[in-house]
Every structure is written in structure tokens, then in C-alpha cells.
């Protein structure tokens, strides 16, 4: 009962906005090319989702169901986000652990990181094309840069804030350096690292849309730019809504993962 009430309350404002928007469109307040009605957007989204052709002979049902443009684009974007994120975070995590744990390594690398960090990933676009040409590689590169710094900075902070009492307790139990790192420092730093992962995934998702506007011919970012060339504003908005839904799905997944990995953490109740 509570859930229904909460849902109704949450849906109230969006529904009102949609009704107002639909009413304005039907009254002819703005041109359909500039601002299509929500019903038109929904119809376009549905068409965009469904397979473009009839099922071919020999084609499996699943393959056919996923042959629609939207699902293909969403898959391409998601693939780029995950691959780019894994590259960026995979480099940031070990470097962050080392920089957090060792003041000499920190002193060596920190100046370079501080110079590179403020450069937005988008500023790397020209270099990315020059170095990697077209296709997926420049996207991976840009996304990796976007994910790298949030994970790096949070990992360093996470290692540095590890409470000295855990280190003392572990030393008292006879723990050596490697075990200290893997079984004490790393788990103690996970709340920070995972916060960095969440920010990093968010950045990766912003960057993937931008990167698809320059160098590839599929993905949600490409699709909305392509739609603009044909003045298909309904498709642009349908694509944007898909981007929003995919982002929400990614964030929900990461947040679930967080809750599982941090089930021991005091601040989290589930």
C-alpha cells in the first residue's frame, strides 16, 4: 500500500509535465520539428526499439528481438563504457594503492597527476583521433581517462584514511606487509574506492556519449547526432530518454554492488 502511494506521489510531477507538454503541442504552440509531442516521442521510441525487419528464416528469436536499432545502440554504448572503464579503473587502482601507501611514490607521481587531472576528457578528443583514428579505440581512450582520475583520487584517499588502529591490531597479530595490504588496507579502503568507482562510471557514461559523436557510427550518442541531421527531433528525444534509462540502470547496478561489497559497513543499512 505504501509502495503504491510512494509511486503515485513520485509520478505526479512527471505526469503533469507530460500532460502540459502534450497539450501545448496539440494546441500548436510550437512546431513539431522543434518540439514534438510526447506521444510522438513515445511512438518513435517504440519504433526505435522494435526490430526493423521481419524475422528471417533461420534467425533465432533472441537475435531477431535484439536486432532493433535501439538495443544495438544501447549495447554498443554499454560495451564502450564497460571496456573504457575497466581500462581506466584497472590502471588507477594499483597506482592509487601504491600512491596512498607509499609517500615516496606519491611524491613522484602526484605533480603529474595534478597537472593532468583538470584537463577534461573532451579536450583529449583531437589527440584521441590523431593517435587512435576512428572506431572504438579513441572512445576507449577517452572513457578510460574519464574514469581514471575519480578512481585514482578516491583510492589514494581511501588508503590514507585507513584507521591506524587496524594497522596496529594487524601488526600485533603478526601480519606481514603483503597480507597487511591485501587483507587490511585494501578492504579498509573499499568504501572510498567504491565511491570513486561510482563517480568514475558516471564520468565514463558522459564521455561515451561525447565520444560517439565524433568517431563511430553506432551507439546512442551517434544516433541522436544523426537524428539531428534529418531534423528528427522525436528521435533525438527518444535517444536522450534511452541514455537516461541506461545511465539509471548502470547506477542502480553499481549501487547494488556497493551494498553487497559493503554489507559490513556501519553506514549502510539494507
Amino acid at each position: 500500500m505504501h509502495k503504491i502511494k510512494d509511486f503515485a506521489q513520485g509520478a505526479l510531477v512527471p505526469v503533469l509535465v507530460l500532460i502540459l507538454w502534450e497539450a501545448c503541442s496539440r494546441a500548436g504552440l510550437f512546431s513539431a520539428v522543434v518540439m514534438p509531442a510526447p506521444s510522438a516521442v513515445a511512438a518513435k521510441w517504440w519504433a526505435y526499439l522494435l526490430p526493423a525487419q521481419a524475422q528471417e528464416a533461420g534467425q533465432s528469436w533472441l537475435a531477431w528481438a535484439f536486432s532493433g536499432e535501439l538495443l544495438h545502440d544501447a549495447y554498443s554504448s554499454l560495451y564502450r563504457v564497460i571496456a573504457g572503464f575497466l581500462i581506466g579503473a584497472g590502471l588507477a587502482l594499483p597506482l592509487g594503492l601504491l600512491m596512498g601507501a607509499n609517500t615516496r611514490i606519491y611524491a613522484l607521481f602526484n605533480p603529474l597527476m595534478q597537472i593532468l587531472r583538470p584537463i577534461p576528457p573532451i579536450a583529449y578528443i583531437p589527440l584521441a583521433i590523431l593517435w587512435f583514428g576512428l572506431g572504438n579505440p579513441p572512445s576507449f581512450f577517452l572513457i578510460a581517462i574519464g574514469a581514471f582520475f575519480p578512481v585514482l583520487m578516491n583510492t589514494i584517499a581511501g588508503v590514507r584514511q585507513v584507521d591506524g588502529i587496524y594497522l596496529r591490531a594487524a601488526r600485533n597479530l603478526g601480519v606481514g606487509q603483503w597480507t597487511m595490504f591485501t587483507r587490511v588496507i585494501l578492504p579498509a579502503a573499499t568504501p572510498y574506492i567504491l565511491a570513486g568507482v561510482r563517480i568514475g562510471i558516471g564520468t565514463a557514461f558522459i564521455v561515451v556519449i561525447v565520444s560517439e559523436m565524433i568517431a563511430v557510427n553506432d551507439g546512442l550518442g551517434f544516433r541522436i547526432l544523426e537524428a539531428r541531421e534529418f531534423m528528427w527531433s522525436d528521435k533525438i528525444i527518444a535517444g536522450m530518454i534511452t541514455i537516461g534509462l541506461l545511465g539509471l540502470a548502470i547506477d542502480t547496478a553499481v549501487s547494488r554492488l556497493n551494498n553487497h561489497l559493503l554489507r559490513w559497513h556501519r553506514g549502510l543499512e539494507h
Binding site: 588502529i165 591490531a169 601488526r171 600485533n172 578492504p187 573499499t190 559490513w264 556501519r266
Partner: peptide, 18 residues
């Protein structure tokens, strides 16, 4: 240096929360 021949119990418990 510290060692497991002298186990210590701290006021703050110092259990590993994970």
C-alpha cells in the same frame, strides 16, 4: 616490534569491520 606472542586488546576493540 609487535608480535603474536603478546596479544593486545584495545579499548576501541579494533576488530576488522569487514
Amino acid at each position: 616490534s609487535p608480535g603474536p606472542d603478546r596479544g593486545m586488546v584495545f579499548q576501541e576493540y579494533a576488530l576488522f569491520p569487514w
